[in-house]
Nucleic acid binder design. Structure first.
Length: 801
RNA sequence: GCGGGCGUGGCGGAAUGGCAGACGCGCUAGAUUUAGGAUCUAGUGUUUUCAACGUGCAGGUUCAAGUCCUGUCGCCCGCACCA
């Protein structure tokens, strides 16, 4: 069989575009639905089947919503600043602008071939100056509100990309872009004070509907912990060592302290440290280690005592030794801890190695064998002795600390401030000017966008500075405040900047007065449903929630949270079950699939291949199965007959299928929705006939998945208008149930037969029917019936002895 | 190590505690075709048919367990010396 999918698909794509079918309407009185997918990075490799799966989910939902009368905004754009384009430009000498334009063109044509119902009038390119003007504008607002700062710190630096990376971009000690080893380097970098928003980002999760594991990942990322700050006096000085602990209940067991090798107290009191040379040697050794090496959990702890320094345990009043060790980080808490070896595994390992006292303060474990971290009765703990629970002991200790002025309750987060800069060309210039008199001054709002200047060489300088640093006319400028000579910042923003607010621009993409009008934002926000990959759940999602929340706080957007609902699709693996990669040669190009089978087949297959959220391997045979399905649908026309309502024979099947497809789309169970359509198709083929009303219903249900073939057949059977503009179909619950049902009869839980009873049969009727059955009779013969269970319309179970 | 998820035919996967394996792939046989491909029809969990046994493994709850509970093994994904 087969049909000319290529001609049909081009025909309908053109019609949809000519008649503006998928453009969101300016009619703000309509109910709205804002569906958002993560806009792609337009790489040179072109689209990946993963993109197709990612967009097909909300595509189906958006098409259904339009047919249900919603004003749907389903936009698309390109997140186009970034390193791959720039690296390509360095290699080939072609300007990143040109590379980007070419790649966007390629992506656009590929996306259009699939027939996605995006609103192409709202397309965004983050590298467009009309767009990044507003990225800079928001940054400047943050600067004005004290959320931007500059600090000299150890940064993650990629020697290959010559670029400073955020913690998020250097997970596992590898550069997220080129995968080479990241090293630590001291550098002046820009930060966004995202930690100030930690609680807002955490609490905001209560008001949104994210899949539970997505929410959990965000919570873990923010990493809030409640504990106490405690001041330990440094014996013989006026100084204190301030620590953070979540287990102040164990303080009587603190037999030593550990401070980070970078801790400032070491230099301050170096005169008192008798083994300062050994300490310096250890510090030098630590400095060589990468962040990754330092964060490897190792049983074999290293460290050096600070000989001559003692701290005073505020609970016991005793002097305890102080060590430095790299298992304590400067970047979390206060960079110092009280060590309680009996009840903390790391402290236990350390104490064993260095022969330090281990004092049990909570009963329940065996401190000869290891640390006990569970709950139990307090011992060896002065005023805490006898207390039975951790919770109570913590409360008592906090009271004690407060009375003595030695400490107080405190909260810590794992999340760190966001390193917000790159020493690269292809990014948004940071709109700041360094003035010798006025300090850091923002580029005036009316001068935005601060355009990327033309350069000849895109490669970063040898010192790792941005290519912009070598352009005199860009660097040298006047201070907007005092008018004196000043220097312009030459760093650019990181990859994540443009995507932190793009969903706002979609609401009003051509506005040149504001990033979007208040009316548009009020109508469209929040995004009703955001779908994307799991890999963006912690970075992009947290960053954009932060920007959005900031804009909300300064009155620029109407909602506190940007995304009302978030889901994620599963990965598509190669046919060999491995992750697709060029080197493995297992990459499936969506273009090839469209060429050979058509866009409708591609769309149906990516949704049918398995559970939407799960990882599943690509199967060429699976694609062929979907092709066969659509071919068989095309063949329905040959058995078409007249009829304005469902035939008796198929009526129930249709109502059931409408119900199933409608519900499954809402829960993203696309695979079972398609399976239901296949089942119905098989029934139609069994019946050997389909009437016009049935055909229309079938095409309506099919159209979100396979819109081209649906439109074509709709037109062929004389359907009114375009299906894309058509009406979704309702079902009648009462018609989804049969008059009679065949229900299983179990004896002692084992299936022994079936009986046919009226669907609304009561227990007596059903049991009587079962008892009348010859086969069942045989089983019951000579036994006593103990119990009869009847689940209406479902089953009978007779318990006998 | 901690947190989360998952183990169902040859494969991808279905199953509000109620007939396990929907749907698709693959496979087998037949039809059609010069042949291949395509298509159509029938079959397809395992074992020896009646029947019995079957959802990683071992227990438990229940009239009834893939589903709930306990333990255990294996795999996947996050986070990872976070004090």
């Amino acid at each position: 069989m087969g049909y000319d999918f290529s001609a049909i698909e081009q025909k309908w794509q053109k019609r949809w575009e000519d008649e503006h079918v998928f453009e969101a309407k300016e009619d703000y009185s309509m109910p709205k639905f804002y569906a958002l997918i993560e806009f792609p990075y337009p790489s040179g490799a072109g689209m990946h089947v993963g993109h197709i799966k990612a967009y097909s989910g909300l595509e189906v939902i958006s098409r259904k919503r339009r047919m249900q009368g919603y004003n749907v905004l389903y936009p698309i754009g390109f997140d186009a600043f970034g390193l791959p384009t720039e690296n390509y430009a360095i290699k080939t000498g072609i300007h990143p602008r040109e590379v980007t334009d070419r790649n966007i063109k390629k992506f656009t044509s590929q996306l259009k071939r699939v027939g996605f119902s995006f609103d192409w009038t709202r397309v965004i390119d983050t590298t467009d100056e009309d767009y990044y003007k507003w990225t800079q504008w928001i940054f400047r607002k943050m600067f004005d509100h004290g959320l931007v700062f500059r600090a000299k710190t150890l940064v993650n630096y990629c020697p290959s990309c010559k670029v400073v990376l955020s913690n998020e971009d250097s997970q596992g000690g590898k550069c997220d872009i080129c995968h080479s080893d990241v090293v630590q380097k001291s550098k002046d970098v820009w930060y966004l004070r995202i930690t100030e928003y930690a609680d807002k980002l955490l609490n905001g999760l209560d008001s949104v509907d994210y899949l539970p594991y997505i929410r959990l990942q965000q919570e873990n990322w923010i990493g809030r912990s409640e504990g106490a700050f405690v001041n330990f006096a440094l014996a013989g000085t006026d100084d204190i060592i301030r620590i953070y602990t979540t287990r102040c209940d164990t303080m009587f067991g603190a037999t030593f302290m550990v401070i980070a090798p970078e801790h400032p107290l070491i230099d301050k009191h170096r005169d008192m440290i008798r083994n300062i040379s050994a300490v310096e040697a250890y510090r030098a050794e630590c400095a060589k280690k990468t962040e990754f090496e330092r964060t490897q959990l190792v049983k074999d702890k290293t460290g050096v005592i600070l000989d001559g320094l003692y701290a005073v345990n505020p609970a016991t009043g005793k002097n305890i030794p102080v060590y430095i060790s790299d298992y304590v980080m400067m970047g979390y808490g206060t960079g110092a801890i009280m060590a309680v070896p009996a009840h903390d595994e790391r402290d236990y390992d350390f104490a064993k190695k260095f022969g330090i006292d281990i004092i049990e303060v909570i009963k329940g474990g065996n401190i000869e064998e290891g640390a006990y971290t569970g709950d139990g009765e307090m011992v060896n703990s002065g005023f805490l002795n006898g207390i039975q629970t951790k919770k109570e002991a913590i409360a008592r200790m906090l009271e004690f600390l407060k009375e003595k002025g030695l400490g107080e309750k405190g909260v810590q987060y794992k999340m760190k401030d966001w390193a917000f800069n790159r020493q690269r060309y292809w990014g948004e210039p940071i709109p700041i000017i360094h003035c010798p008199h006025c300090g850091m001054v923002g580029v005036p709002y009316e001068e935005l966008p601060l355009r990327l200047p033309e350069v000849k060489d895109f490669a970063p300088g040898v010192g790792g500075e941005s290519p912009l640093a070598s352009i005199d006319y860009f660097v040298n400028c006047k201070c907007p405040k005092c008018g004196g000579d000043a220097k312009r910042e030459t760093d650019t923003m990181p990859q994540w900047a443009g995507s932190s607010w793009y969903f706002l621009r979609y609401c009003d993409p051509h506005n040149d007065k504001e990033f979007a009008s208040k009316e548009a934002l009020k109508y469209w926000l929040p995004v009703d449903w955001y779908n994307g990959g799991m890999e963006h759940v912690t970075r992009h999602m947290i960053y954009s929630r932060f920007w959005h929340r900031f804009l909300y706080d300064i009155g620029e957007v109407p909602t506190a949270e940007p995304y009302a609902k978030r889901t994620a699709q599963g990965l598509i693996l190669g046919p060999d079950g491995e992750k697709m990669s060029k080197s493995k040669g297992n990459v499936v190009d969506p273009n090839d699939v469209v060429d050979e089978y058509g866009a409708d087949v591609l769309r149906v297959y990516v949704l049918f291949m398995g559970d939407y959220a799960s990882t599943a391997p690509w199967s060429e045979n699976g694609v062929k199965g979907c092709k066969r399905f659509l071919d068989r649908i095309y063949g329905l026309t040959s058995m078409l007959c007249d009829g304005d309502e469902f035939s008796k024979k198929l009526e129930m099947s249709f109502h059931r299928t409408i119900k199933k497809v409608s519900e499954d789309i809402e829960t993203m169970k696309f695979n079972t929705a398609i399976a239901a359509l296949m089942t119905l198709l098989n029934e139609i083929y069994d019946a050997k006939t389909i009437n016009r009303a049935e055909m229309k219903a079938f095409l309506t249900l099919l159209s979100p998945f396979a819109p081209h073939i649906s439109e074509e057949l709709w037109e062929n059977i004389g359907g009114e208008g375009m299906l894309a503009n058509g009406k979704w179909i309702d079902f009648d619950e009462s018609k989804t149930v049969a008059d009679t049902v065949e229900i299983p009869v179990q004896i002692n839980g084992k299936l022994r037969g079936t009986v046919v009873v009226p669907a609304d049969a009561d227990k007596d009727t059903a049991i009587a029917a079962a008892n009348a059955d010859e086969k069942i009779k045989g089983y019951l013969d000579g036994h006593t019936v103990v119990k009869e269970i009847f689940v209406p319309g479902r089953m009978i179970n007779i318990v006998i002895k």
